[in-house]
Structures are given as structure tokens and as C-alpha cells.
Amino acid sequence: MSAHILDRPVFATLNGRQGHLAVRRGGAVRMHPDYGLFAATVDERPESLAALGDLVRELGTVGLVELATPPAPAGTEIVSSALCLQMVAETVAPAWDVAFDMLPLDDADAAEMLALATLTKPGPFFARTHQLGEFIGVRVGGQLVAMAGERMRPDGFTEASGVCVHPDHRGKGYAARLLREVTARILARGERAFLHSYADNATAIGLYESLGYRGRADVRFTILKPADQ
């Protein structure tokens, strides 16, 4: 049994508040591919791993967030297993004035959100990822140039995610201010905010710490794909 709900955030998410987004096969579960690639198993018994393999072969590549790299089920192969720092915020830095508006984003902005995420690669982002939680953004001359929002929602927590800025508009404080606002809204609901950063991204970790995030655990983000691809 995990000592903390965030030790297995995907499993907790897809067996909790976002269970309606889950596709299940025996002892395995994954987020519907329109929303994300996250997956998990009940345990590492052969039958659970076999069920995960079925999901990978049926619906494609998945990503697992666990304390250690899990074994690859038969018929799949590990593409990568990256060390990440999981960070949690129980308080947030005070707000500061900015010379731009932070606008709510919704389905009408979906195509632009996907295009921005595809360009900047803040993490896995798909056609309906923006529906996982609230997203806000910044527009310049009508163009969406920055955004941040919410992703996994295990009980008592919400993950801040999707933080990205168009390359032509970096260095203006968009990422920090948007992430600060997303974090503040999560905390205002009585939840705790969390996020993940690649462990070797010292710049990002420093930004997150300045906003109130603190390291909780090292986790592995493992990508599995069908072996024949």
C-alpha cells in the first residue's frame, strides 16, 4: 500500500474524481486518449501487467508516474523513464501586478491551446486535455501566447500543468504569473497544489520554489509503447 496518495497520482486520479475519464481492462486503467496518456495498474501481478499491455496495444502509448520504473508488460517496450521531482504547494507567493490580462480559456480556444502545447511541449497535451480543469491564458494581438491550467485531480489535490509560453513572447513573466494564479485558485478551493518537473531542470524548479512549491518525492515518468511500433 502507498504511504501517500501522490505516490501513485495516476492511479489515485483515475480511481477518484476523474474516474469517468478512465478506460479499464482488468487490473489496469488509463486515461481516455482524447484527454491524456496516463495509465496505472492495481499492482504488479502478471495479470495486471498483462491488462496494461492490452491497453497499450489497443489504444497506444501510455505514461506511468510511479516511485520506480515498472516492468514492461509483454508486447510493450519502454521508450523512456525520466526522473522527475514531484512538488507540492500548501501556500503560494503573494500576487504581483502585471501589465497583461489573464483570460479564462475553454472549448472555443481548444485548437489554439493544442497548437501552443504542440509547439512548446510542456508535457503530454491532447485534443481534450484542456477539459481536465480550469485553464487561463494571455493573448497578444489576439494570439494565444501563454497558458497554464490543471490536469490530474487525486482526492485533496490538483495538479498544475500545461504551463507554456510561445518562444516569441518569453521573458515577460507570463509563466510565473499564470502558474501563481492557477496555484492560488487550487488552494482557494481548500486543496493542495502539486506539479512535476524533470529533476534536471533547475531553472523550472527554482521558479516553482519561488512560488511556494517544495519537493515531495522523486518519481519516474515512464513511457510505454506497443513493441511493434
Rank of each mutant, 00 (worst) to 15 (best):
A127K: 13
A93T: 08
A72D: 09
D228W: 10
V98Y: 09
I5A: 08
Y35E: 05
G63P: 00
R139E: 09
L55H: 03
V88Q: 08
T118R: 13
Q229N: 00
T91A: 09
M147H: 01
E181G: 04
R151I: 01
A117H: 04
D200N: 12
P9T: 07
E191K: 06
P124M: 04
F221H: 15
E44I: 07
F125R: 00
F194L: 10
S48Q: 02
G173F: 14
I205P: 11
R214P: 12
E209M: 14
P94Y: 11
E66W: 02
P94C: 12
L55F: 02
D218A: 15
F11M: 09
A89L: 09
K172N: 15
I5K: 01
A217W: 03
R24F: 09
F126D: 12
R45C: 05
T91D: 11
D218K: 13
M102G: 12
A175T: 11
L179S: 14
A176T: 14
D101F: 03
G190R: 01
P73A: 04
L224W: 02
R216M: 14
P154S: 10
F157E: 09
W96L: 15
G171E: 09
V42W: 03
A28I: 07
E90T: 15
R153A: 14
D228P: 00
R8C: 04
L55C: 06
I223G: 02
L103I: 15
D101P: 06
R128W: 03
G16P: 10
L85P: 01
R57G: 14
P122D: 07
V145G: 10
A127V: 15
E77S: 12
L103V: 15
G171R: 10
V92K: 01
R170P: 13
T222R: 05
V140C: 10
T120L: 08
P46I: 02
G190C: 01
T203V: 15
K225E: 13
A89R: 11
F125T: 00
L59E: 06
G137R: 02
Y198V: 11
P226F: 09
L116M: 03
I136W: 12
I78H: 00
S81M: 05
G162M: 12
P73T: 07
L207F: 13
V88E: 07
F135Q: 06
V182C: 07
P154F: 07
G142T: 05
S81D: 04
L55A: 02
D106L: 01
R25F: 06
E209H: 15
A110M: 01
P9L: 04
P124D: 06
Q143D: 15
L207W: 10
K225W: 00
G123K: 05
R192C: 06
F135I: 00
G123A: 09
P70Q: 08
R128E: 11
G133D: 04
M147T: 06
G190F: 01
S210R: 15
R30H: 05
D7L: 04
G142A: 03
L178Y: 07
W96Y: 14
T91E: 12
F194D: 08
P94F: 12
H4P: 03
A127S: 14
L6R: 01
A117K: 00
G206D: 12
H4S: 08
E77Y: 02
E44S: 13
V182G: 04
N201G: 13
F157D: 12
A72Q: 05
V138D: 04
N201L: 13
M152V: 04
D107T: 03
G36V: 04
A111I: 05
G206Q: 11
K121M: 10
V88A: 08
